[in-house]
């Protein structure tokens, strides 16, 4: 059930007349900020990915809070949470579930795997074999799994947070481009600031078992989240911004150092993320700022760019396309 409120912006045109109050996401935001201190910008992007119904790939060093973030998100969203520790001997059935013979009923019954949770944390996903990775692929893209010719629909708010370690690549299976394209964005958390780390240390002395004392009250229910996601998808994107997005997509395809340009699916994801960003900013429409704010994590995960050159190339792409400063007539 969403809460419809009348906009109270400074100007009557700056918001839609009736919209979902962006403040409904504040409890989730607060919970995540409490779990991961000093990373508000990362949390905004995580929220954008959740609202855009996209999956998240977090690539960073061990111990920076990847799992903590995932768990806090699962708790906040109020759904079920599952975790897979990916290893080379992990089988597809361990992810999707499998059928077992029930001695009592003398029938095969289906035991659902972790993908049937609302939030799935796939830790160190690049240590799973490609076979297992591709099992996850169908689940992420189509929100369903097929086992023994039977298709099982996943949760409406199914959300994958995968992590991978950029160092220690020995014995890993890098994710193929097809699977990378299923993720909405790739994030790096990075080290916290000095003040954030001090607060973390102080909190640890006050509360020796933070995981046990953390609030287990969800900030949203799955129904709330689904309604929010539907609302985000309906936020309008003006013709000027549409043209801007198309120009950017063309720029990724014509840049000489980009081996794999942006796919139409990637473009759709980018637009949805920009809509989510606009919602989080409390705006009823998408601006080029929204597009640019989510551009780097969105493009970095799916464009074929040499890792060392990625920041420079993405910067070139964003700066090569003029921001529309005059209205564009719809076609």
């Amino acid at each position: 059930m969403t809460r419809l409120v009348e906009s109270a912006a400074e100007h009557p045109n700056t918001r839609s007349r009736f919209s979902v109050d962006p403040a409904v996401i504040d409890p989730v935001r607060d919970a995540l900020n409490a779990a991961l201190r000093g990373k508000a910008d990362v949390i905004e992007l995580v929220l954008a990915a959740v609202l855009a119904r996209g999956h998240l790939l977090i690539e960073d060093l061990p111990g920076l809070g990847k799992t903590t973030l995932a768990k806090a998100l699962a708790r906040s969203l109020g759904g079920s949470f599952a975790r897979i520790q990916c290893t080379p001997d992990l089988l597809p059935g361990d992810v999707t579930g499998f059928r077992v013979f029930d001695q009592n009923t003398r029938e095969f019954t289906f035991l659902p795997g972790p993908v049937f949770a609302d939030v799935l944390l796939a830790d160190e996903i690049n240590r799973a074999t490609p076979r297992t990775q591709s099992a996850l692929l169908e689940a992420m893209a189509e929100r369903q799994v097929t086992i023994d010719t039977q298709t099982h629909v996943l949760s409406d708010t199914f959300f994958v947070i995968a992590t991978q370690n950029p160092v220690d690549q020995h014995g890993t299976y890098p994710l193929p481009e097809a699977q990378l394209d299923r993720f909405a964005m790739k994030l790096r958390i990075g080290y916290p600031g000095r003040s954030s780390e001090r607060a973390m240390l102080e909190a640890a002395t006050r509360d020796p078992n933070p995981h046990q004392t953390a609030s287990s009250t969800p900030a949203l229910t799955p129904g709330h989240l689904r309604a929010l996601q539907d609302h985000v998808a309906s936020i309008p994107v003006g013709p000027a911004v549409l043209d801007y997005l198309l120009d950017l997509a063309h720029a990724t395809r014509s840049h000489r150092q980009v081996l794999l340009g942006l796919s139409p699916r990637g473009l759709l994801t980018w637009q949805r993320l920009a809509q989510a960003r606009a919602f989080l900013q409390g705006r009823g429409f998408v601006t080029p700022d929204d597009v640019q704010d989510v551009a780097i994590p969105t493009l970095e995960v799916r464009l074929g760019i040499e890792p060392d050159a990625a920041p420079r190339v993405l910067d070139e792409i964003l700066h090569s396309v003029p921001v529309p400063v005059r209205p564009t007539a719809p076609p």
Partner: peptide, 20 residues
């Protein structure tokens, strides 16, 4: 800031001309 908000709304928003 007020002008930026207004201009963004008129440039990128779906709503028609400003009432004021």
């Amino acid at each position: 800031r007020a002008w930026l908000a207004l201009t963004e709304c008129l440039l990128y928003g779906p709503i028609g001309p400003s009432p004021t």
